[in-house]
Design a protein around this nucleic acid. Structure first.
Lengths: 365, 365
DNA sequence: AATTGTTGGGAAAGCGCATTCCCACTGCAT
DNA sequence: ATGCAGTGGGAATGCGCTTTCCCAACAATT
């Protein structure tokens, strides 16, 4: 038994398919009450479900919004996804999910797939990369997105503009002031802690990571501190863990050489480029017997919800992730904010975060 | 500029649409090499992207798999989602996401939407409910799913069968032995801890929660312990937190009345129905000055990845969430396992978990 | 009473593609 | 030379729906 069609409903109701379509789906023309009732009845008894594919084909609008993330199980992305999903729901759309691990080639493919499905909008979350080996991939991705935009698509971009994309309408950027917030965080920490800083960042070229690192450094510089060393690792918990092990080794060395003493003051303050790296680093340090904040201070970035109960409380920058997802999706919805401006998309909505200091950076001599 | 169509490509290549279709999409008939090359060229220069909607309409198979979760930002669901996504990717399908908060009415709607999009499969994760107020909703959901199945759809169900669904082919259950594992966990804890137990569960009627609670109780009973009291709260961090506050109050009372003394032994062992509730409860207890495991032991369920670095390490039951998502999706893929059986779907694949004891339940007198 | 709107409904033309026929042509055996 | 299977390509139909256009019936206007 195949699903029943509009035509069958129409036949059962004794009307034309056109009329059935008008009553069952929101049309401008409302047929008379008697006819409407008959059609609705027929649809009910047949268990009619409109074929969204056919509808999309006929009116060329699919009610789909595509979402591209690195990894849906990463709490950073799942929080954004929740926001996207919410807005989609409000707008009676469905979200199509693609996870790419951050590989531009995969992202390009995802965009193509979304374009093939004629998604009304694409939200692309997750950091772009500037690594030389990604250059080709980025160019391809940009080209694919440009094409999508030229064909009337809207893309909501989280964080930073697409590398190499044209200045097309259709792009809507939700800016996240990573650098400024990182600077603020570093500044606040520098005010209360006088020791060394070290930064744990993602691979070089990952824009979000680089922005935050740059912010950390400016914050330190503004406070009259020397630039911090930057440890590179993968932008996740595992990367943080490795970096944590490396730092544990250094603290041990410093103590062995008498440059620092246990219990005196924390050997260093670690600035991690995101929360999960910070947690990973903490785990790495702990595995070597070090404790936070006794032996080292540490701060993260994002304020991941699931991690807020972590002990000691992780100092971080709270980012309204869900809101970011919402805004990115809303911005694609066509309803341009009526700001009396140049007509151009005025850089889209922008969000801000909030430096949040907790126990992990509290040092009481 | 609208996206170019197959017909345009065909015209540019000087062939018929039929031929163009044959070369650009996998058809049984392969046109000659010269023609193929011309068509491919034309497609390239035009930036042709096939219209998936039209393709789906023409061959009635959409390449879509629908995923229903309560909340994509919940690490339990996002882990499953990752598994689903992986398999979908392997099979060159896309996943359509719907979040419902667990409301049967919303889930029914999601199923209808998936059916409308002619999704090849639906994976429904997230606990069903038996609450009386959900009865109507469940029946509707079951009816919708049944209809979807009868129309040839496949649905992968995580955890427990759909309440009220018919015994149709098309349903594929990935069983999770919640009760057995909960029993095992409770048993192991009862072996090393002689005090009182209390259970923090989700709302009554939530099947996953109820199964686990039942398992806890059997485990205690098997160890010769009295049944534990069950505190009901919402099945998330907030619910756990509230329950934690309540338990803090009780511990305080017990101490005030001299029934228990600080530092003597943990006042009780808390069995939470999932990890996030356990974390919430821990936070609640801590907010009142209590510490784990000094003042109370606590265990969770799921072994959420993000929570593994939590201190003290949370005793829990490790569930292969990602694998569960994978299996649920794979089971819908039509390739029935060739088990020499009754031809029926042999209960589908099943997974198991692993009791994992950590510091949160370690009591050293 | 004749004309002009106005309304409610149907017929038909796509939307972009897959696919089933059908036809012209080749190479081979007869 | 005639018949045949085999091959590469096109014409046409249909997937299920929306929408424009058209037509009949009726009410409202001078």
């Amino acid at each position: 038994m195949a699903a029943s069609t509009l035509t069958e409903v129409a036949r059962l109701a004794g009307v034309s398919p056109a009329t059935a379509s008008r009553v069952l789906n929101g049309s401008a023309r409302k047929p008379g009450p008697g006819v409407s009732e008959r059609v609705r009845q027929a649809a009910e008894t047949l268990g009619y479900i409109p074929n969204a594919q056919a509808q999309a084909l006929a009116k060329s609008s699919s009610g789909l919004v595509g979402l591209i993330v690195h990894d849906i199980a990463d709490p950073y992305f799942s929080a954004i996804a929740r926001g996207v999903q919410e807005v989609a729901r409000e707008q009676h759309k469905m979200v199509l999910l693609a996870t790419t691990g951050g590989t531009p080639a995969d992202e390009k493919e995802a965009v193509a797939a979304f374009a093939a499905r004629r998604a009304d909008a694409i939200v692309i979350a997750g950091s772009r990369s500037r690594r030389p080996e990604d250059e080709k991939g980025n160019a391809d991705l940009a080209a694919e997105l440009d094409r999508y935009c030229r064909n009337g698509g809207h893309v909501g971009v989280v964080g930073q503009a697409i590398v190499g994309a044209g200045a097309l309408d259709g792009y809507h950027l939700v800016e996240v002031p990573n650098e400024e917030l990182a600077m603020e965080l570093a500044g606040k920490l520098a005010a209360s802690y006088s020791g060394d800083f070290v930064i744990i960042g993602g691979p070089e070229g990952l824009i979000t990571s680089d922005d935050r690192i740059r912010g950390f450094q400016s914050g330190l510089a503004a406070a009259g501190r020397p630039a911090a060393e930057v440890l590179r690792a993968s932008f996740n918990r595992a990367g943080g863990y490795e970096a944590g092990l490396e730092l544990a080794r250094r603290i041990q060395d410093a103590r062995a050489s008498g440059a620092s003493k246990e219990g005196e003051k924390p050997g260093l303050c670690i600035l991690a480029a995101n929360d999960v790296m910070a947690i990973g680093a903490t785990a790495g340090l702990r595995s070597q017997g070090f404790r936070i904040p006794r032996d080292a201070l540490i701060a993260g970035f994002d304020d991941i919800e699931t991690l807020r109960d972590f002990r000691p409380g992780l100092s971080t920058v709270r980012l309204p992730l869900e809101e970011i997802g919402r805004l990115a999706t809303l911005s694609t919805a066509g309803a341009e904010a009526p700001d009396g401006g140049d007509g151009h998309d005025d850089d889209g909505p922008s969000v801000t975060g909030q430096v949040t200091l907790r126990r992990s950076t509290e040092w009481t001599p």
